[in-house]
Write a protein that binds this DNA or RNA. Structure first.
Lengths: 112, 112
DNA sequence: ATTTAATGCAACCCAAAGGTTGCACAAATA
DNA sequence: TATTTGTGCAACCTTTGGGTTGCATTAAAT
């Protein structure tokens, strides 16, 4: 099953999990203990995070340590950053753009 | 209904809509024409985008222009950026961290 | 050898997501 | 005035998401 990083970080619980293991790995139960929901629910979230590469699991005996692969967030970072320039420029141009559009199409100036 | 920006950009169609109107506003039908799915489906996506502030609509006569409010992406940007330092540092420390953990807990060195 | 973690996962549930068709309605146009 | 165009939205359907309980399995601890 191919998972999407954007979808993975859409859920607040998963974002919290990432935050929790960002600095050091934790085993599955340790992660689950920090939430109200069941271990299985957390297990599923972690599974999804591994499916899109945001988390990698290393087993030690019966414990499985979850480690965050934060580099995978570059996909998100890149997507957002491509718009950064636009959103600075945009602010001053919007009104002009709409006025221009209005004139071109000969629409009444009234904006409801 | 309060919507989450993270959830809004989770859907690939919505990300495409944002991309489509990032440079200049488009009316609802114009956006919809670029997709295979129905106008209603796109309408719903746009509605959701407005609910979380990523899109603002300005009406001209019977047309409604959708404009991207890209600044709202700072929430995403900020969240991702907080991890950037960690993911550079992390790479070299992981093995050490795990070894340390191993030693402390007196676990066998075998990593399956 | 028993018992006690730590875990994976099937089998369910219910709500939400994403899609469709169809209809209503106001603005622009013939 | 009659018609076309752009739009909102209800009603419906199916899939996915996030949650639960319960059971099996394996490693560690008694």
């Amino acid at each position: 099953m191919r998972r999407d990083v954007f979808q993975a970080i859409a859920d607040p619980t998963r974002r919290e999990i990432i935050n929790m293991i960002a600095h050091h790995p934790l085993n599955v139960n340790a992660v689950a203990e920090n939430f109200e929901v069941s271990r299985t629910a957390i297990y599923k979230h972690i599974k999804m995070l591994t499916e899109c590469g945001l988390v990698v699991i290393t087993q030690f005996g019966r414990e499985r340590y979850c480690e965050a692969r934060l580099e995978r967030l570059t996909e998100v970072s890149d997507w957002v950053e491509q718009y950064r320039r636009i959103w600075s420029e945009r602010f001053e141009n919007l009104e002009n753009y709409l006025d221009e559009l209005e004139t071109k199409k000969k629409r009444p100036g009234k904006r409801k």
